[in-house]
């Protein structure tokens, strides 16, 4: 048995040597991020941030992994934006399948000149992976609110990736892009148990207001104690309806801001906002509760 295994391993090694790149896994993560500010460099505008002193070492983004829960209007666009920023690793979670009504929101699903109808019926995670195949995200088509789904969710958040440097464990940040209270509570539960920082997002149904909330277990109140409505308004939580479905769904402002916060979380070492709330029709937004990291 042992002999056989050794023979197979040797054969595998020989095959690997025959590969054009000598068996090294080629992917975008292996490429260098050039700091040269020229039009031909895809990273030049990002690396400029480093030259301006906004961030110390932009290439650190390659070492960051982000889990996105909910690949809908917010999640799919956030995944694409973070990919464009060069994020090291993405984990995607959704239990749903694609339908045509998703078209206005899931921009990533229709990019690359592929008609959305091509994706209809696919799980949202598969569709997202196809679009983001350059960075090869891990994807999970499962319902995290069930006992079994929750276990898989927890295990996958803990798992280290072979592509990441040894000092990185699990994920750096979880982004909650879900549309209901139950799923938010599940993300909250998992992150509390894993001592995992996460960000909650929500868009109002008519798409003109939204919020982002950073939750750090042990430092901030958890989502169960301080859901966004309570933080925003100070009203009695029990008087509130708790579900946040997203029907009109034009959350572009929301996602851009969300990704901006994610990058701030990754790079900015001092003050970052714990809570952000915006309201388009009243030309109003506020953020407060500065957190020194």
């Amino acid at each position: 048995m042992e002999e056989e295994l050794r023979a197979i391993a040797e054969k595998l090694e020989a095959l690997r040597r025959d590969l054009p790149d000598g068996g090294r896994h080629v992917d975008s993560i292996a490429e260098d991020m050039s700091a040269e500010v020229v039009d031909s460099n895809p990273y030049s505008r990002l690396m400029a941030l480093q030259r301006m002193g906004i961030v110390q070492n932009y290439e650190r983004i390659r070492e960051f992994s982000v889990a996105i829960v909910g690949i809908g209007g917010v999640g799919s666009v956030a995944a694409e934006m973070l990919t464009r920023c060069g994020i090291g690793r993405l984990l995607l979670y959704d239990y749903d399948t694609v339908e045509l009504a998703n078209m206005n929101r899931s921009g990533m699903l229709i990019s690359h000149h592929v008609r959305l109808s091509h994706f209809v019926g696919m799980t949202k995670t598969d569709a997202a992976v196809q679009t983001l195949s350059d960075i090869n995200p891990d994807s999970y088509s499962l319902n995290i609110t069930t006992v079994k789904g929750f276990e898989t969710f927890m295990e996958s958040l803990k798992r280290k990736s072979s592509l990441m440097p040894a000092h990185c464990s699990g994920v750096d940040l979880v982004l909650s892009c879900v549309d209901n209270y139950e799923a938010r509570m599940v993300v909250n539960q998992a992150c509390n148990e894993l001592n995992q920082p996460w960000m909650e997002s929500g868009v109002s149904e008519d798409a003109v207001s939204g919020h982002i909330q950073l939750l750090i277990p042990g430092e901030t109140a958890c989502f169960a104690c301080a859901p966004p409505l309570v933080v925003a308004s100070g009203v009695d939580e029990r008087t509130l309806k708790r579900e946040g479905v997203c029907a009109a769904s034009l959350p572009t402002t929301m996602v851009s801001t969300f990704c901006c916060f994610t990058l701030a979380f990754v790079f900015i070492d001092n003050d970052i906002d714990l809570y952000y709330d915006f309201h388009v029709q009243k030309i109003f937004c506020f953020s407060f509760l500065k957190c020194r990291r």
Partner: peptide, 21 residues
């Protein structure tokens, strides 16, 4: 699916649900 505004700030504005989800 009934429509529910996610934020109390929206309560003062009349909300019309155009799409049935």
């Amino acid at each position: 699916k009934a429509g529910h505004p996610d934020l109390p700030l929206r309560r003062d504005l009349e909300l019309r649900i155009i799409t049935v989800i």
